[in-house]
Design a protein around this nucleic acid. Structure first.
Lengths: 237, 237
DNA sequence: CGACTTGTTGATGTACATCAAGGTACGTGG
DNA sequence: CCACGTACCTTGATGTACATCAACAAGTCG
């Protein structure tokens, strides 16, 4: 494969993210294209919907700052959180490629988004193979995350599940520079935790408390400190 | 979006699949490219591994006939089935785009595969935007399936989970012409069922039995007949 | 040569004790 | 006020253990 640099990349590089060494450098031509592709920026308040199931949005987004989560609900209200979106993540690709979205996206904090026109996605593929390759790369990575979460809720015990999720979130936060050496600030309630891991809030609370007593983590007031990374990793397998 | 025909497509169209109306028609040029991209065909016996976690394969596959499943395991042997592969599905895209596979793929029946060279995937993007668009489309669809499965194991009851999975498999089999009006033949054991839905075999058996008693399905000897589609759909939400 | 046992294997069915997880309810605390 | 904490009882799910059943292969006998 003669594609240059097989590391992490994103599609948005006119934004603050350019500084972060996580993403590859774009060529002048690509940057120029991205500038024209971009239609604006918006800010969404915590708790507000960014994308809604069933609705086919005309927009594509990348996250500039803040957190969001993708989720799905059953008619009776049961909710499953599918994954979290952090700076550099793409939102709404599904509704652009497939006929309609089958999940919603809600902001977890105030979130800054870069807006792209969905209609011009095809130009991506037509004129910019490197950028479209990146897009598929992002889709494949998201798939990998989902594989991990499915294994997590399907086959791990409650304690292991929380450990795994904490490590996943920590790694993701670290990758975009949102963590110090052993702590970060996921804007999650225990309800979010429960809905991500497929359990009730009560049980999530009890289990998290247990992790607390084991002195592996310290999670209070939206601040999460990892006290024993090695043991936590061993617990999560 | 001026991309022609926004329906279902696959990347492989030199193969028997061309007949199936599920896939869009390829242009002569695309067909020619695909012919050169293809490096051969192989047949894999039921139970054998097609791709293995951690190993970075040099091959990409499309399924010509037969069933397979993607799965992940924990060090102690607990297994989670992530999804099933049917004719027309792509296998091994992750290992081509990302540094390594984080799941394995095993044949559920004798399976015929079309083999492509992983090294030349980049040519896809460089010279054939329509085909690379298709590839991203497939990745997005797989992501949608995974979203559905995650909601399933995370938030549905055991009974609902089985109902949902049966409907999912039925729809997929129907789409590639592997079903009659109300029955098909998924080559699954109850162990596969349990590992897909995140439950024990015993519980899968009891719950399936309950679905049987409710006269919604009839599943014996690898033959699955749906007796009451409407009720089954209502149960699965 | 074909039909009839027998043994083996892998999948399925079922019972029981145990345990993990759920739901309601009501507390505290920032 | 909303998120977190915790107690209580209930229910859903697990694991072990063992019985059954169909499929297949090999050997036996009419």
């Amino acid at each position: 494969m003669d594609y240059p640099g097989n590391g992490r990349r994103t599609a948005c590089d006119l934004c603050p993210l350019r500084q972060i060494n996580v993403f590859r450098k774009f060529s002048e031509e690509e940057l120029d294209f991205m500038r024209r592709f971009k239609t604006g920026e918006i800010s969404v308040e915590s708790g507000a919907l960014i994308l809604q199931e069933g609705v086919s949005s005309n927009h594509l987004y990348t996250v500039l700052s803040g957190w969001a989560f993708r989720f799905n609900t059953l008619p009776d209200g049961r909710r499953q959180i599918l994954n979290f979106a952090l700076p550099g993540d793409f939102l709404g690709l599904q509704s652009s490629l497939l006929t309609e979205m089958n999940h919603s996206v809600e902001a977890l904090s105030t979130i800054q988004l870069c807006v792209f026109s969905r209609e011009r996605l095809w130009e991506f593929y037509k004129y910019h193979p490197t950028l479209s390759y990146d897009l598929t790369w992002l889709a494949a990575r998201e798939e990998q995350f989902l594989d991990g979460h499915l294994l997590n809720v399907g086959r791990r015990t409650a304690l292991e599940r929380i450990a795994y999720l904490i490590l996943h979130l920590f790694a993701r936060a670290r990758d975009v520079g949102l963590s110090s050496s052993n702590s970060f600030s996921p804007p999650l309630t225990q309800q979010h935790l429960a809905d991500t891991l497929g359990m009730s809030v009560v049980h999530a609370n009890k289990t998290l408390r247990r992790l607390h007593e084991m002195k592996l983590v310290h999670w209070r007031r939206k601040q999460l400190r990892i006290l024993d990374l090695t043991k936590l990793e061993k617990l999560a397998h």
